[in-house]
């Protein structure tokens, strides 16, 4: 009898963890987004917040985007040169492959994974701290739609800034690739340039932008959800910050698969 009861409790716990909790979380997320996308109470306050967030989430990320893209662009060029070196392989292929990797995957998907760490944890911890220090309650008491006031400017700002970050990333990666030619002598710069221009398709740039805008929405909204629903103290804020990065990354990878198939399949 005791064993039967234990089994039943275990089954209940499994159902709760595997089924009910994810459905509840998705439901809460949708409800929060419903509140977030309500008309702002004051447009002037919305635009003020929007500009602040563009600086905080977008402009302040330019440095890390440029740095990482530069080195990745350089490393990709060296790796490809080393691994496909063959008398049968045209030398411009290195430039062509570097461009395709940077354009199609790195500058949109991988860069957004990196930004999920930087921007996502920033959003989750900022909103989470506001929750535990009762700043969100203060907004609610005043009659302000706290979700709309705090989350909407972040989502819109990141979605606005992300295409610019993608452009910066692509150019920085290409500069990194050229640096391996100019300073490392890995490849002839003319061959690299020819490869970078070879069989260029403008649609790939648009694919990169479209994917990054989707990822920006995932990063900002998922992180905001985790921050907004924090209960407890500083440990809960830290957990929300970690959870937001993990969940955003998983969702980015999954949606990357779907979007790539939809846009290029």
């Amino acid at each position: 009898m005791h064993l039967y009861r234990q089994k039943r409790l275990l089954l209940q716990e499994i159902v709760k963890t595997m089924m009910i909790r994810p459905i509840t979380t998705v439901g809460k997320y949708i409800m929060l987004m419903g509140r977030t996308f309500a008309r702002p109470e004051r447009m002037r306050m919305f635009f003020k917040q929007y500009l602040n967030e563009m600086v905080q989430l977008g402009v302040n990320s330019i440095g890390i985007v440029l740095l990482i893209s530069f080195f990745i662009g350089a490393v990709i060029t060296i790796q490809i040169k080393l691994n496909i070196e063959s008398p049968w392989m045209p030398r411009f292929v290195v430039g062509y492959t570097t461009r395709e990797i940077m354009l199609l995957e790195f500058s949109s998907s991988i860069m957004c994974l990196i930004l999920a760490g930087k921007v996502g944890s920033n959003i989750a911890s900022e909103i989470g701290t506001m929750r535990v220090t009762q700043q969100i309650d203060a907004l609610e008491i005043m009659g302000v739609n706290s979700a709309g006031y705090l989350i909407l400017p972040k989502i819109v700002a990141l979605m606005t800034m992300i295409p610019f970050l993608v452009i910066f990333s692509i150019f920085s990666g290409i500069i990194g690739a050229f640096c391996t030619c100019w300073f490392g002598g890995v490849l002839n710069a003319e061959d690299l340039e020819y490869g970078l221009q070879y069989s260029f398709q403008e649609w790939f740039v648009w694919c990169s932008f479209i994917k990054s805008v989707f990822f920006a929405f995932i990063i900002s909204s998922v992180s905001a959800y985790f921050g907004y629903t924090v209960e407890g103290g500083s440990i809960a804020v830290g957990k929300a910050s970690t959870d937001s990065v993990v969940m955003s990354s998983v969702l980015i990878l999954f949606s990357d698969l779907v979007l790539t198939q939809l846009l290029m399949g």
């Binding site: 701290t129 220090t133 009762q134 700043q135 309650d137 203060a138 609610e140 008491i141 005043m142 009659g143």
Partner: peptide, 16 residues
């Protein structure tokens, strides 16, 4: 009605 209310929180809850 909420615009007729003011509240002072335990932690002051000022916007940082």
């Amino acid at each position: 009605l909420r615009r007729e209310m003011g509240m002072i929180f335990q932690s002051a809850a000022l916007f940082d």
